[in-house]
Each structure stands twice: as C-alpha cells, then as structure tokens.
Design a protein around this nucleic acid. Structure first.
Lengths: 161, 161
DNA sequence: TATTGTTATACTCTATAACTATA
DNA sequence: TATAGTTATAGAGTATAACAATA
C-alpha cells in the first residue's frame, strides 16, 4: 500500500514509536503524583541539592506556576520537602525524603525496562546503532531553530517566509 | 554528565527529534485550515473516494466531533466539498476540489523536505538504515498493546498490575 | 431502534497576569 | 525596584452527551 500524508515514512513511524513509548511511560509512572513530570522533579530532588524550585523548573522546561502544583502533590505524598534557603529566604530548595529517593529509584528501573521493551524488536547490536543515530539527530535538532529551519525548507520550494 | 530521569537516552532523544519534527511540520502546514490534521483529511479526500466522514475520522484516528469542525474549515477555504451519498443520505462523502488537490500536493512536497531536513545529520546510507530500524519498531509497537506491555514490564520488577 | 453527522456542555492543560514575601 | 513562589483567571483543545435526520 502506497502511503501518503502524515502517515508517510518518518512522520508516521516516529510518531508511532514515540507515542508507544510515552504511553508505556505514563502507565509505569502513573502511581507517582504528576506522572512523568512529577518523576522528573522527584529524580532531580533525589540526586541534587537543588538551587530552588525556580531554577529546577527552568532546567526541566516546566512552567514555574505548574511547578508549584507539582511540588504540592509530591509533598502531600511525602516524597519531597520544601526547605527554606537560609541564605535567601525567598528560595525554597526541594529535597527528596527517604521514601522519595526509594520511589525515584524504583521508577528509574521501570523506565529502563520500558526502554528495553520498546527496542526489543531490534537485535542488540542494532539497538546501540539506533541509539547512536537518534542521539546524533537529537543533538542536531536541539542546536537548530525549528521555525527558521521550516522557513528554509519552504524557501527551497516556493520562496515563502 | 551522567543523565538520569526522563532525559535519559531513548526517552530524551526520541522526544527531542519527534518534537523538532512536529514543530517543523506545524510550521510548514500552518497555512492549511486545521494544520497537520487538516492536511491529513485533505490528502485523504484528494486521493480516495472517501466512504463518508465517519469512516474517514476512524481511519485517521480523529474524533468524529472534531472532524465536523475540521471539514467546516476546509470547506470554507474551498479545499473540499461535502457531497451527499445518494445510496445512504445520512453519509456525506468528502471530495477535494481542484484547488484542494493542488494545495495537498504542494503540502506533500513540503513534508518531504522537512523529513530530509530532520535526517540531514545522518549520512545517506545511515538514513535508510535508521528508517528501517524505526519502521521495524513502529510495526512492533502498533501490533502491541502499550498498557498490557507496561504491566508486563512492571511485573518483571515488582509484580504489579 | 440504530447510525450519520451536528451541536452544546464540561473538563483538562496551559498560559498570563496579579499578588505576597523577601531582598 | 526586582525576584521567588503562589494564586486566580482565561484560553485552547478534547471528550461526553444530547440532538436531528435518515435508515
């Protein structure tokens, strides 16, 4: 069947694999408050002496207003604590509790298992090749400006932008 | 830097590449009513004698209530028409106008260019290897049930689900 | 009664801006 | 005045359910 449209090749396959991954991750992290994003915050809190929730939000690409609710939920669940920074009492450092560190580690194992499962269709050797390719594409994609790139693409075709 | 959390390997790279692709596609199709989804409908209408908008919605994974608005916009822009099916007057077949077919073809070229651009970081040979890997993963992922898979993954670790 | 397409309502996310407390 | 965190409000997007026309 000759496919066409967004289902074509890259767009379709990339989307299918990504959504399958996201769905599995959502499922595996559903017991954590805030789901995947809650896990990101928890994992950061478990590893680092965070500099305050604002900096944390920025680093994780989460809006600071969303961060408030996220931490509210994690705190209610007893996974993290807000500690006032003595040096600057406007800052609140987020630190994981013992329970939080435990849960974070457990979630990490599950995520690893999900990754392996998503890649299970490939031979072990191909898996690392694939990861290498993806990494190269990701690095390039992050460095670039998607909007400008899109305009370049269009320019080649009809001089738009 | 030892990364951890969702930013790890597969999840992070897959997300970055996918989002870059989606963003570029959004940009390149922004002039079409309904954006990427509008294009999917338009492309389907341009190629096939569609069996009615309900069937179309189901095949494209679009909610039928959303499909109504989508087609409203495409029709207003003069890209498609709703034609009553004489055999069953409840059905409305969606057919592309001459303008619609033209726009659909132009959009197709742009999408192809976006794909090439996203994969530009790889050597030509590696590109097709990568596509092959992705396709294998996508086929497997689509055949499987993400939720059940997630439970299997979890079971291996702590007997949940 | 069941089905196609349409419309109306509600709910979830996100983004924006206003507010407090510190500095 | 500026900044960290919080709270309140409004918007887009989606999902749910009621509705009209046809079978």
């Amino acid at each position: 069947m000759e496919r066409d449209g967004l289902d074509t090749d890259l767009g379709w396959t990339l989307g299918v694999v990504f959504r399958a991954y996201v769905k599995a991750v959502d499922e595996v992290l559903s017991h954590l408050p805030g789901g995947p994003r809650g896990y990101q915050v928890l994992a950061a809190a478990a590893q680092e002496t965070t500099a305050g929730q604002g900096a944390l939000a920025q680093r994780l690409g989460i809006d600071r207003t969303v961060m408030t609710y996220l931490i509210d939920d994690l705190e209610r669940a007893g996974l993290v604590e807000r500690r006032l920074d003595p040096d600057d009492r406007r800052n609140k450092r987020i630190v994981a509790t013992a329970l939080g560190r435990e849960r974070s580690e457990a979630a990490r194992s599950r995520l690893k298992a999900v990754e392996d499962h998503v890649l299970a269709a490939l031979e072990p050797g191909d898996r690392s090749t694939f990861r290498g390719f993806l990494q190269r594409l990701a690095v390039r994609a992050q460095a670039a400006d998607p909007v400008r790139d899109a305009c370049q693409v269009v320019e080649e075709l009809d001089g738009a932008c």
